[in-house]
Design a protein around this nucleic acid. Structure first.
Lengths: 148, 148
DNA sequence: GCATATATACAAGTGACTTGCAAATGCAAG
DNA sequence: CTTGCATTTGCAAGTCACTTGTATATATGC
């Protein structure tokens, strides 16, 4: 699910955002990524270029404000972004944060609150972002003694 | 659900931990609190005293390692502690983090994964800490126009 | 091309978490 | 009660993600 530079350009122009190098790069990275990316992860993938971290940061904010990017996880105080519309449900599924390796994975399942939920909380819970924190399957395997 | 200084002292001695001022105070605070507390929240409640923040921090770590305290939430990169045994389920219920006011509330409900969950993830999901992030009922009310 | 609103680079600030180290202290043995 | 030693404390500093100020550079409309 990657997009060309021209497609990225069109996305920006449609929102009346200026087309700049960092902006195109960030958009393309988000489009190409399997899961959500954090500011730091994006910087790492941008490796070669020497754009300022603050520039990338402001672009993420800009893209978010423009509705092109979504913050779909904020594990451990780290916001992670995904391209809006990249997944059918816009990442409105739970995300799993591994406390060992730090990776964030999309969980293809739904966690439904019970019917009996306190009415006061119903709306809040319904709109909330759901996040699980624990050990991912890979790290679990290592912890519990990997096969020798 | 508060404890006396002597009860706190006994808890520490049972684990072979030295009894010190900050340690007793932290234990009593955790015991007295409704919900989980963060390092900063504890410092605020300690107000009058002038114990070093690093000391309180290390005590939290110590209590956690000793099994007296549990990290039951780590919203936005902020660990929150609760006294072990203070609640029947040791806070193994979901917690709700308000993105507006920052408060962490205990949700009295269970979010169950569907039967069909990927076997690979089953164990991880089962042991994971569940956290919801959104607007708490109070903040929701303000956002959506409070009653005039 | 030019003007100008917008974006970038650089520097710096905040807050939570963490660690190093020397001085102080709890605890237990003498 | 004194002494010895391991544990704690206080202070200083470092890390990392997030955020903002400001002067310079630049994309875009005219």
């Amino acid at each position: 699910m990657s997009i060309t530079k021209n497609e990225a350009k069109k996305l920006l122009q449609d929102r009346a955002l200026r087309v700049t190098g960092p902006r195109l790069a960030v958009l393309q990275l988000l489009a190409a990524s399997q899961g959500p990316l954090s500011h730091t992860e994006i910087l790492e993938r941008l490796g070669e270029t020497d754009w300022d971290p603050a520039t990338i940061y402001r672009n993420l904010v800009k893209l978010r404000d423009a509705g092109l990017a979504l913050v779909v996880s904020c594990a451990e105080g780290i916001d992670r972004y995904a391209l809006a519309g990249a997944q059918k449900d816009d990442h409105r599924h739970p995300h799993f944060v591994c406390k060992d390796c730090g990776q964030v994975a999309c969980l293809p399942l739904e966690l439904k609150p019970p019917e009996s939920i306190d009415e006061r909380w119903a709306a809040s819970v319904d709109k909330a972002m759901i996040q699980l924190r624990g050990e991912c399957p890979d790290c679990l395997e290592v912890t519990n003694g990997a096969p020798a």
